[in-house]
């Protein structure tokens, strides 16, 4: 291979150390927000394995649940839940800015859009809990 160079040579990349995001709280929050996606992906792979185990039978499912009871997994899920909630919060916050909702000629104020997202989120989450735990 010849010299390494960006695929789009027209772009300028400032030279920064890999720790640039530690310089300001805002940068740290940005990086934390981006990292939430890693926890989302890990959990979804887990969920896919869980669905697969459910298909394999009661014993396979029980074994998987037993594994998830270990302190390591519980600790991981507590941390992962915090990150996933941070994704939800930041996503709704961004939606309020990006998504312009109009009623007639008037724009719905962004805080109201964000509040609407939260309400919808709570309703959807409660519905899923109800569907899985109560209805049978």
């Amino acid at each position: 291979m010849s010299e390494a160079r960006p695929a789009r040579p027209g772009l300028y990349y400032p030279k920064l150390p890999a720790t640039w995001w530690l310089r300001r709280p805002g940068y740290v929050r940005f990086m934390l927000r981006e990292v939430t996606s890693v926890f989302v992906a890990i959990f979804l792979v887990e969920l896919l394995v869980l669905v697969h185990k459910i298909g394999q039978g009661p014993q396979a499912y029980a074994d998987m649940v037993a594994k998830l009871q270990s302190p390591g997994w519980i600790a991981f899920h507590v941390v992962a839940l915090a990150f996933v909630l941070y994704h939800t919060i930041t996503w709704f916050q961004a939606t309020g800015v990006v998504q312009v909702v109009r009623v007639g000629d008037r724009q719905v104020p962004p805080p109201l859009v964000v509040a609407g997202n939260y309400v919808a989120w709570v309703v959807v989450s409660l519905f899923i809990l109800y569907w899985l735990l109560v209805r049978s």
Binding site: S37, V40, F43, L44, L47, L81, V84, L85, H87, T88, W91, F92, A120, W121, V124, S125, I128, L129
Partner: peptide
């Protein structure tokens, strides 16, 4: 991810 992942 925002709406469905936390509850699951």
């Amino acid at each position: 991810a925002a709406f469905l992942v936390p509850v699951h």
